[in-house]
Write a protein that binds this DNA or RNA. Structure first.
Lengths: 343, 343
DNA sequence: TAATTAATGGAAAACATTTTCCTAAATAAG
DNA sequence: CTTATTTAGGAAAATGTTTTCCATTAATTA
């Protein structure tokens, strides 16, 4: 920045008044200022193309206007939509959304949290730290310790209660919902293609499946849990494994839609017909889900809307003193063509 | 922030020295400070869990450490990858990446630019403003005027030279590349499914097609340009239109992969075989592209890598005085199964 | 008319840093 | 032994705002 910054003083000089007065018209304060001078100040501001230095304002007010958003993978449709929702609301209200992509590395998560701390972020949305793993959890404590002192909302991060607002993302409920649908359609031999190892989200979805099964006196056979990683590729590989036990299975729940899509693709590729030979369902309702062969039956999590709600919630708790609650979003069973009713 | 902030003064008091000295060890300045006191200061910092207030630092140094990234749609795989690339590099170097999702609205673009200005962003990546539209361009001037004074890189934004670093994203070249491939395979009657109306990117891809055609004394028949919007849905609709002239067409270039995927889907749906009845190609090489029926022939733009390169470039020009050039990335023709060799 | 009160404005302190300048001691050079 | 130089440290100014306090004038009330 070679060129000198234009400050409130320059405006004051041009408008023939004090910086104090300029500040007053900028923030239209309670302290009265005459119509006349106000106009002069406005004119000066326009003429100089002045905009108050947020950094200086921040120093004075002890606010950074930064909202940190920490996610695993911004290219994952799930997080992308969420970030978009948050941004929509936050940027419109003069806040900065500062994203971090952690690729599920604790080190990066810690780094993000430290940066956010150094920058005195006003609030943090933390969608990371979801590994149920001893070593990882140890490190998480350091992170949480930092987060505690801040205005933070955790996104279904961990089973441990941390005295931090932890939003239930409805993972378990979604899995339960679609499982019950499967059972209603007569399926009893249901397989599961898991998400990433030790990821809390995977755990919850698996749990939703298991408990629904139990409710109907059915069991989730451990032999019928196939590993996956939330990706299309992972779904394909799982399909190959699953093929070996195809006779023991009438339906399969994939931990997410990407996996389900991969499953369907490879199943087709191997000459297995969906849903005639096997039913496949997912969770998320990706935009692509309706264009698979056959269109995927799944449950929609309105993540974008959750994002805007989080934005709203954060903003309220930053401006108002008493924080209202986060508006919840409704998930929905999306029946398409990948499930066959049996018997 | 009810709880009082820990400042350099607190550290100084605990370490029994002056704030000046603390500052010196924090920034390990040239000014010497004895081993002994340095250690005391470090100890105090640890004990108080102190991290210097970036806002105050920013005020003093006239740096915000903010890098603004303005994109059309963060959920679009193209931009998501780009943002991820930028973040990867930038966050690792103590910079904040501040994203804006504009949904192609000039008003939002202007808002973003104004916020970035108010926050004294150190650099801006502007991937917006790409509409070739009179009214729009008028407003763009206001935006550009603001951007000019900042360290900005434009991402293939507009045909007009604005004295701002404007990166050629290779849109035209990509289109040319795949067109030539089509011609090599014997295709002469090539249709085009356009991108969003007036979008510069669409224009460039169309131009790449047109000029390659001309090179071989072929013409792009205006009747064979179908409208689209870069989406799967758009591709589907275009397929329906395209069907009416199927006899005049042997191949179709979609403005992007999403469109091509939609095309293929609907073509299949209508009983038209790809590539037997018609060849389809796209541009971008989305992850999904290899899983369509048939797998899509396309050209890959390594957007993620472009992102990291932009990060690198920005960082260099912020730290070093003389700015080195942006490393370019290489696009590649990805031959899969959606093109048939004819004659 | 005198005494309040309201309207308008400014000076200076404060926010958490860094930087410039200064001082004092210790060491090196003459 | 005197004079430079190096080493180590601090006081205070500066960054661009906002806020607290004070001052002046005008308007209202007693």
């Amino acid at each position: 920045m070679a060129n000198k910054e234009i400050t409130i003083k320059d405006v004051a000089k041009l408008a023939e008044c004090s910086p104090t007065t300029v500040s007053r018209v900028i923030n239209n304060s309670d302290h009265p200022v005459s119509q006349d001078t106000a106009e002069k100040v406005q004119a000066a501001i326009e003429k100089l193309n002045f905009s108050p230095n947020r950094i200086a304002q921040g120093l004075k007010s002890d606010k950074s206007n930064i909202i940190g958003v920490i996610v695993h993978d911004i290219c994952d449709s799930y997080f992308a939509q969420m970030v978009k929702g948050i941004e929509e609301f936050i940027s419109g209200h003069e806040y900065i959304v500062n994203i971090y992509n952690t690729s599920r590395s604790v080190e990066k998560e810690l780094h993000a949290v430290n940066m956010l701390k150094a920058n005195r972020a006003d609030a943090i949305v933390f969608a990371g730290g979801a590994l149920m793993d001893k070593e990882y959890e140890q490190k998480m404590y350091t992170i949480i310790e930092q987060l505690k002192s801040q205005n933070t909302v955790l996104l279904g991060v961990t089973p441990h209660p941390f005295e931090i607002k932890n939003i239930n993302l409805g993972n378990q409920k979604a899995a339960a919902m679609i499982t019950e649908y499967l059972i209603e359609q007569g399926h009893q031999k249901i397989a599961f293609v898991d998400g990433p190892q030790n990821l809390y989200t995977s755990y919850l979805r698996r749990k939703g499946l298991k408990e629904s099964l139990n409710k109907y006196n059915l069991n989730l056979n451990d032999e019928l849990i196939f590993s996956g990683d939330f990706s299309f590729e992972g779904g394909r590989k799982a399909a190959l494994e699953l093929l070996k036990k195809i006779d023991e299975i009438t339906a399969v729940l994939a931990a997410n839609d990407a996996t389900a899509l991969g499953l369907i693709w490879e199943l087709n590729n191997q000459g297995i017909k969906v849903p005639e030979d096997i039913s496949v369902v997912g969770i998320d309702d990706l935009p692509e889900a309706k264009y698979s062969y056959p269109p995927l039956t799944t449950v929609s999590l309105p993540i974008y809307q959750l994002g805007t709600n989080i934005g709203k919630y954060l903003l309220k708790s930053l401006t108002n003193d008493q924080s209202s609650d986060l508006e919840s979003v409704e998930m929905k069973l999306i029946k398409r063509k990948s499930v066959k009713k049996i018997i």
